[in-house]
């Protein structure tokens, strides 16, 4: 009996590193990241595109990796939560302002939804002009498509402002 799968080999740049993986064509991007590439920081909360836990950034835009097939990112650049922090000159880790803000503002409890929020917010903040004042409506829009069952969102919204302020200061 033959497998009902056919496979493809894809090349994708993940967090700046070119990676190659041979995946069944039906493999979700979320599963490929987690199980084929071992990047388990991307979480799966619903697998039907509603919760946003699986959000990663593909070619600069936040996408739900459970709604994409792995073969669709062939040739693309993918950024996951593992790629948010950067290395400093001494080989240490410098957290992204939104990561710092999440810790500072207690914007996570169980942490399961957190990678999705971090990627959504990082992409959102990086795409805008930080010199401009961030409005409450903008913040609600930015995080309004992600579900969190623990925090009630108050501290997540606070963290967005906190991160935006830090990014503004860094730009200044």
């Amino acid at each position: 009996m033959t497998s009902i799968d056919t496979e493809r080999t894809i090349t994708v740049t993940v967090n700046g590193v070119p990676r190659e993986a041979t995946v069944p064509v039906r493999r979700l991007l979320s599963d490929a990241l987690r199980h084929d590439l071992g990047l388990t920081g991307t979480h799966v909360g619903c697998e039907h595109g509603v919760c946003g836990a699986c959000t990663v950034v593909v070619d600069g835009a936040p996408v739900r990796s459970c709604l994409m097939l792995a073969v669709q990112v062939d040739g693309a650049e993918v950024r996951t939560v593992e790629g948010l922090a950067r290395e400093d000159h001494q080989g240490g880790q410098v957290l992204h302002p939104v990561q710092e803000a999440f810790r500072e503002c207690h914007a996570l409890q169980c942490g399961f939804c957190t990678p999705g929020f971090l990627m959504t917010i990082a992409a959102g903040l990086e795409a805008r002009d930080n010199a401009e004042e961030l409005t409450e409506d903008e913040v609600e829009d930015m995080v309004g498509g992600n579900l969190c069952r623990c925090t009630g969102y108050a501290n997540i919204k606070k963290a967005v402002h906190h991160a935006a302020a830090a990014m503004k200061d860094a730009d200044a």
């Binding site: 920081g41 991307t42 939560v81 948010l84 957290l95 996570l108 942490g111 399961f112 957190t114």
Partner: peptide
């Protein structure tokens, strides 16, 4: 500030 956060915000939690 929470001590569990470092791993959870960097994708190093282990669920």
């Amino acid at each position: 500030r929470r001590r569990e956060d470092q791993r959870l915000i960097t994708g190093k939690g282990r669920y």
